[in-house]
């Protein structure tokens, strides 16, 4: 009995275009909802979370000395063999890297170097804008790695930004937090 009623209801609904009506109200509602587009890189930019694995950076200790002890564990564990470390010994008898190169063109950003490091010297930071016209430019040396930005402190927000046309891909941001992009996601 109920099945017959259901079928009858479906037919009446079809005859009165109830299915079409619900579809049109849905799209009409969506038309006045806020767009989720992030206008990168002209106007807005995404801030990554602190767990984000972006460009590598090397850390310094309190005296400003490089933390890396050139044990080459990161080079060993690297699955794509993109880290090259050459050690030297300074006047105090401490090991440091004379050469520390990461080929970011080959890197797969797995973060194993960060896990393997016994001296907490290397980590994957927040920078994600480092595309280049030449794969040679993607081989990053020790001094550049020391200057790269570290882990993000805040994240998950969208901040106003503008494209810096002087440098190729850098996007400048001013505010630290921005608005939460997820507020635009409509859940029905």
């Amino acid at each position: 009995m109920s099945r017959v009623q259901d079928r009858l209801g479906t037919w009446i609904g079809w005859a009165l275009f109830a299915d079409l009506a619900s579809a049109f109200t849905l799209t009409f509602g969506y038309m006045f909802s806020r767009p989720v587009t992030m206008q990168y890189p002209d106007k807005e930019k995404w801030l990554p979370y602190s767990r984000y694995r972006g460009h590598h950076f090397l850390k310094r200790d309190e005296e400003g000395e490089i933390k890396c002890v050139a044990c080459e564990l990161c080079a060993r564990i690297c699955p794509c063999d993109c880290i090259e470390v050459v050690p030297y010994e300074d006047e105090n008898g401490k090991r440091h890297p004379a050469k520390f190169e990461i080929d970011t063109a080959r890197c797969l950003f797995c973060g194993l170097c960060e896990d393997a490091c016994p001296a907490d010297a290397i980590a994957l930071g927040q920078q994600y804008e480092f595309s280049s016209f030449s794969s040679r430019d993607l081989v990053i040396g020790r001094d550049d790695l020391l200057g790269k930005p570290g882990k993000a402190m805040t994240g998950g927000g969208v901040v106003t930004a503008r494209l810096n046309t002087e440098e190729d891909v850098l996007v400048e941001t001013s505010e630290p937090h921005g608005y939460n992009w997820w507020r635009n996601i409509r859940r029905t």
Partner: peptide, 14 residues
């Protein structure tokens, strides 16, 4: 524009 906003995009903006 309508296509964009119905799909929660912005459509042409540049």
């Amino acid at each position: 524009k309508l296509a964009g906003h119905m799909q929660q995009r912005m459509g042409p903006m540049r």
